[in-house]
Amino acid sequence: MNVEISTPGTELVQRLSATPRGARLARRLTGSTLATWGYPHDGDLSHTARLIVAELAANAVTHGRVPGRDFELRLSLLRERDTLRIEVSDARGDRPLRFLDGGLEDENGRGLVIVQVLAKLWGVTERDVGKTVWVELGLTASRRPRT
């Protein structure tokens, strides 16, 4: 596993295969990274972050997959803003996000409703190739990291 750490202890960037295994690894990596940063695996922040990463990574693998291209997970601890920022980037910019197009019976778009409810802020940024879905979670209600 190749991990880039741009600012020690505050950011993780990882490219993962656009497969179900890659999506599972993204979720696990999120939990272990937050634990390293002082947010326990069984805490609210970790549970929420892993749920969001699981949904965004599953979307990247299912709807954003381009054969031969990975997706990217980025976690950033923004202490000055009391925020955890999660970004999942995929290689498909031609497919917009969908929200429950067919009502509650529709199986597509439910996960984004969960993301919307749990996030402090969230959005989509277009890239040269593909898109990035980003989510910000507040740290205030979570246990403060060890210093």
Rank of each mutant, 00 (worst) to 15 (best):
M1A: 15
M1N: 15
N2H: 11
V3A: 12
E4W: 11
T7A: 08
P8Q: 04
T10L: 13
E11G: 09
L12W: 06
V13T: 14
R15F: 14
S17A: 10
S17H: 07
P20Q: 02
A23K: 05
L25K: 04
A26L: 04
R28A: 01
L29E: 00
T30Y: 00
G31Y: 03
G31D: 08
S32Y: 04
T33Q: 08
L34K: 01
A35S: 09
T36R: 09
T36L: 05
W37I: 02
G38Y: 01
Y39T: 03
P40A: 03
G43D: 06
G43I: 03
D44L: 13
L45T: 10
A49T: 01
V53F: 00
A58D: 13
N59F: 13
A60S: 06
V61C: 05
V61K: 03
H63G: 06
H63W: 14
R65L: 09
V66Q: 04
G68C: 01
R69L: 10
D70C: 02
D70S: 14
R74G: 05
S76W: 04
R79T: 05
R81E: 03
T83F: 00
T83H: 05
L84K: 11
R85Q: 00
I86F: 00
S89I: 06
D90H: 04
D90V: 01
A91R: 09
R92V: 15
G93Q: 12
G93T: 04
G93A: 12
D94I: 11
D94M: 13
R95S: 13
R95G: 12
P96W: 06
L97D: 12
L97V: 14
R98P: 13
R98H: 14
F99N: 06
D101N: 14
D101P: 15
G102V: 11
G103W: 14
G103H: 15
L104K: 04
L104I: 08
E105T: 12
D106Y: 13
D106S: 14
D106P: 11
D106Q: 11
N108G: 07
G109R: 13
L112E: 13
V113M: 01
V113K: 12
Q116M: 10
V117H: 07
L118P: 09
L118V: 10
K120C: 12
K120D: 08
K120P: 08
L121Q: 03
G123L: 02
V124K: 08
T125V: 11
E126I: 06
R127E: 10
D128V: 02
V129E: 09
G130M: 02
K131R: 13
T132Y: 05
T132M: 04
T132D: 10
V133L: 04
V133T: 12
L137P: 03
G138S: 07
G138N: 07
L139D: 06
L139S: 08
T140G: 15
A141Y: 09
S142N: 07
R144P: 00
R144V: 05
R144K: 09
P145H: 02
P145C: 12
R146H: 14
T147E: 15
